[in-house]
Design a binder for these strands. Structure first.
Lengths: 203, 203, 203, 203
DNA sequence: AATGAATGAGCTTTCATTCAT
DNA sequence: CATGAATGAAAGCTCATTCAT
């Protein structure tokens, strides 16, 4: 049923055209889904923006739903990678938090559509189990970090879920302020927000 | 073009049937739009949930867009009313903040779909000027309260837009945690969050 | 099945309100059907223009089709009456033709919507047998007059159907020119047209 | 928005499928619009008669209105071409008129639905400027021919608009008689009508 | 008798998906 | 493999008709 990915293994000099198209579709879909939502985005529009034929999308994805799920999972994974790669778990918790915050901010500034897309499609009925599991996975990782930090008496002794919500909420709130152009995300602002947030959760 | 509301001034026992239907449509639309988004919700589905004919919706609202805008404005106004009615501006800022937070929490617990709906439709292209102005109005009110609190040296000396984003972000983050059943909104939790949030923004 | 005409027999002083409403509906329908066609005219629009409730129309006419048929027959009858009442059959044919032409012109100038309505709805599938028979009746009368005039050697010895088409065609053509404001229907113009037409058909 | 006509320039044997469908839609629309009018004709009915999917019509025409306008202009142009191509302007006026009349009759006999369609949709509010201009263009051409013929003392010294109405009226009247099967359009009849008409307008 | 709010069938139009090229 | 013309199911919306008042 799923289309054979067009020769991803071939070794000659040409760039992998199939992957190119797949990427083009992803990029177009990300932009459109982030701006207009899933149901508000017509597949032919994605095709046009990706500069491929409408039928081509169905060679790479079984359906519009499969596309949005593949995209969701790709974006989620990319964000988790950006946050967690070589994370300095041996540094002090205050320092770890700074790194975490900076990475989140960096990701959001580089790929704002990715964040907007994940926010908008979060928990929508057309997301499948794989997408949901990945979502949960991210939460769990952060929650367990917070759990450890509480144990180490660096953070307030509150249910980790609460602290996750606070941290995530502040982060998304600031991002939204940026995307609505109510505030700039310069270093000074980011530093101030990071300080606020730390004071919210520190013991 | 909007139908003359049938005799809203009459005094006898009958309920105003027209207003009833309008309310039923609003209630159905709120639930569906909050769960599935604007484009994901078919008008006949709203009609079915409201137990009216599909055509009836168009007697009360010119179009699907007009419906979502009327609903958005009604919800926004209701939330602002709930937050700001008889606000104790004469009390200390710490106390004012507590009241504000409790009212927000109370509104969200009573009408979670309202909050989810406003979040999901916030800044969408089908919202008209009236909706946008109301949105801005709410932001302005909160921002000016924060401005005053900064002047009074109760809050950190940061751009109000940042503090608004932080407060609003934490609030929505916690709400999302609740709606996803990752945390309970009992008094203890609310008190803890309120404390976190105050520490984030206090001088 | 057909609605009881509301008390047309009553004797007291009030004007017959029912007939009034029926007339109002006829007048509104004539104007709208003439301008926008049968399918292009919504029944509630007729009701609004007639200043009656939408339901009222259905007390006087079984359906929209019944209305257009009743109207068609009324207009046709009125035109035939205007043309044929006390027709001077004893005068010379040239004189008879002059009278006929003047009456047609007079009718068209007084009730242009009536002519436009009959033209536009002529032979449409929603017209019933009664309407069609009335139409034929008019044709027959004119045809037999022409037949007599041919017999009397006043008109060209051609099949009457041809002469009917010529006479009727010129008449409607001039009327259309008038309604499109390409020409005026003053006495001089009418006299010229009448002269043309006579020369077309005279022996 | 109109679809790129698929390779209209290619030279091999296949017929141009896109143009085929366009033609099929035109043919179906002409028949239905001529018989039932614009508002009386549902788009799916056109699609069915044209043996295409309902959506296909919207690949070729932006809307039902765009379809009726495109059709109107195509028909008008075709009729004007049939009337005016290589017109023998150097022949005597009597002869020119004969040619003109024969061509009109020929067009009407070959494409009676075209004439009925143009008559029925003439001056309707859904016709756009392009349609109206084309209409006017046809009138202007005929009017200027008549003007010249008056100058040359071949026709009665009357306002050209009157003579246009007379000529056009007779022509349409006869056509209507034919389509209602009240008369045949054999050569003899046509000759007789042409003679009548010439006598109506000749000096 | 008169009304007009309510209805749902049917309209115009869109769009996810297919398939001949 | 890639395409985009074609499709028809389903969307948003209108309107002839009904019926409680």
């Amino acid at each position: 049923m799923s289309p054979a990915r067009p020769h991803p293994e071939r070794a000659h000099d040409d760039k992998d055209v199939g992957a190119d198209k797949r990427e083009a579709i992803f990029a177009a879909a990300l932009e459109l889904f982030a701006e207009r939502g899933f149901h508000g985005t017509a597949v032919p529009l994605v095709a046009e923006k990706a500069k491929v034929g409408a039928g081509t999308i169905y060679r790479y994805f079984e359906s519009k739903e499969a596309l949005v799920n593949a995209l969701y999972q790709a974006e989620k994974r990319q964000m988790l990678d950006a946050l967690l790669a070589d994370f300095p778990f041996d540094k002090p918790h205050r320092e770890q938090f700074r790194v975490f915050f900076q990475r989140m901010a960096g990701y959001a500034k580089t790929r704002p559509l990715s964040v907007r897309f994940m926010e908008l499609h979060h928990h929508q009925p057309y997301l499948d189990d794989a997408s949901r599991h990945l979502e949960e996975h991210g939460n769990t990782m952060i929650e367990s970090w917070i759990h450890a930090a509480i144990e180490a008496e660096a953070l307030k002794d509150l249910p980790p879920a609460i602290l996750v919500s606070v941290v995530w909420g502040v982060f998304l709130g600031v991002l939204k302020g940026w995307s609505e152009e109510r505030l700039h995300l310069d270093d000074k602002t980011l530093h101030a927000v990071e300080q606020c947030l730390w004071e919210a959760i520190r013991r």
